[in-house]
Design a protein around this nucleic acid. Structure first.
Lengths: 335, 335
DNA sequence: CTGAAAGCGCTAACAC
DNA sequence: GTGTTAGCGCTTTCAG
């Protein structure tokens, strides 16, 4: 009646189960996989019993080898300490689980994306989702890996590459339009700067459409630190903007502290809108108005694309501006 | 000179490489694995060239089947949206990568840990690290999975189970001692409550040692929401404590907002110390004094334990109180 | 409804 | 220094 098998014993295989149940190995497979051939109810029971008794656990590697599929996908991301990627990662894991897949995570904060991809290509993985921003030059190497790949949260459309992302340009415009709509005439920007940067461009073009002067634009990479320093730069400026569009929540966290230390109050002295819409924005002091990414939807689409024939399909979703206190507009009570 | 192989072609195997290079499959293995037999420099070059030409990528499943090892470990955690687990996950991934392993993540926020473990046990995984708090009843099932397991960040010591964690009890005492040392006589607690809860006990016992009355203790699960609500409960109390020990950073984030809304200033009206020491504490407003976990060290020990003979070894590290503004003591300039 | 057997792609004895 | 070959544990076709 001992149900915990000897630990030191050779691992139980399908052959052991077959022997114990008095059937062939094929039947064991039929039972365990519910097919592809039918099995008599009685036999099935015997097999299941043997499995129990022996404490048999199938060997996933053998199965993968045979089937040519591992039921594992890989998520490449800069890391999960950034709350947006944490959010994304949690959603990817949940969705994968719902579809019977598991997720291998690969962080590529300090190494090139090519190396990350190459590392992944040495594992047997059914598909890869890349949520890093991939430099154009690395794209070719990426495609050559041979593994079905889908770009997640990647701003640029890439030829021949499936991609699910959010229209950051429009998101940025939403933010600026909202601020302008509430009377702001001088709107600054903190984040990656340049014509390649969709959020910067959205901010820039939007101001142009409104024939407003371009507020100060301070370059910052995606980190709390960078936001913090940028805010200090900003408060040192002679002409302060009345509002600020910050390219990510993570940045915004740092910006808020920097402004606070500089004696600049949000939203009284400066209105602030950020981009991402993670949990942090809800519990920041004050809570931050943020262009919120439809992460659930994005992830669902990504998985759907995986089971799709089309080799090149781009899905672009529209983010939504969620109002909280940081922009000075009366936010809904609890958001 | 076309180096991108036909996509629709059957995947190239080691046999193809061998044929192309005019050697046996064994030699290909010897080259690719740098052993176990020596290979003539010239032959090696030919093989490597063939690999290049054919775009050969080894099949990890086959390798795993043969070797009985996958070079994958699994990290079970409640999820990465909690900044502490995000931190932990990033460190685990980095350390794994440094050791040539990859990590599959399994989130078990909404399912029982037993199910998570069972799911993991159907994958071929070399080892599992569990950073959830595992109910005692589930421990047996866990051990029976047969996969080398190590408890990460688990407060309780478990017989026959390797474990790396932090002395939360002492950590909590550090927090309270610090607050008492700075004149606080009424110190409250927010977090999981009860004699099982090491942080609660640390707070409780510490007050007892100082012969101080027990401040208000408000139960809260680990979420920003819960912290937020707890803070509102606290501000509604007739006798406010002058200081607060909060069981986690994530909770603290919510608490800070709740206090803010209740018109209670930190640290002027109430000093606050939390537990974990994630990035968020540095960029909170004000920055939060926190009992900081030695995550790097913890993770390194965990991996070391994996390659260790000892089946039951417990490593308990000591956290460190990192001073910031939230407790009202003059913090070092930039921490 | 059940069984025998041929691989899946790789590693590493073991021969030469 | 190189080649032959027997598996690793599983799935599934093809015969019964």
């Amino acid at each position: 009646m001992t149900d915990s098998p000897d630990v030191s014993a050779r691992r139980v295989t399908r052959a052991d189960v077959a022997r114990f149940a008095g059937v062939s190995t094929a039947v064991v497979s039929y039972v365990l996989n519910n097919g592809p051939r039918p099995v008599a109810e009685d036999t099935r029971r015997r097999v299941l019993e043997a499995v129990q008794m022996l404490g048999y656990r199938p060997n996933a590697s053998a199965r993968a080898l045979n089937l040519g599929t591992t039921s594992q996908i890989c998520l490449i991301a800069p890391g999960v300490s950034n709350p947006f990627f944490a959010w994304l990662t949690d959603r990817v894991e949940a969705e994968a689980r719902a579809r019977g897949l598991s997720v291998v995570i690969v962080t590529s904060a300090d190494e090139s994306i090519v190396e990350a991809v190459s590392r992944v290509s040495h594992q047997s993985i059914d598909a890869v989702m890349i949520s890093n921003e991939v430099p154009a030059t690395d794209l070719a190497a990426l495609g050559r890996s041979g593994i079905p790949t889908i770009l997640l949260n990647q701003p640029a459309d890439v030829v021949g590459m499936r991609s699910v992302n959010v229209d950051r340009y429009r998101g940025a415009r939403f933010a600026v339009e909202h601020l302008v709509g509430h009377g702001h005439q001088s709107i600054g920007y903190i984040g990656p700067v340049g014509p390649q940067e969709t959020r910067w461009r959205g901010w820039h073009d939007s101001l142009e459409s409104f024939r407003l002067p371009e507020g100060p634009s301070i370059e910052a990479v995606y980190s709390r630190e960078a936001g913090y320093r940028a805010a200090h730069e900003l408060t040192a400026l002679s002409d302060q903007p009345s509002a600020l569009f910050v390219a990510s929540d993570e940045l915004a966290t740092g910006v808020m502290l920097g402004l606070h230390e500089g004696g600049v109050r949000v939203p009284e002295d400066i209105a602030l809108v950020s981009f991402d819409g993670t949990q942090e924005t809800r519990f920041s002091i004050p809570p931050i108005t943020s262009v919120t990414q439809p992460v659930d939807e994005m992830v669902r689409h990504a998985f759907d694309l995986l089971t799709t024939e089309a080799t090149s399909e781009v899905i672009r979703l529209v983010p939504e501006l969620v109002l909280r206190s940081s922009c000075g507009c009366p936010p809904r009570p609890s958001q």
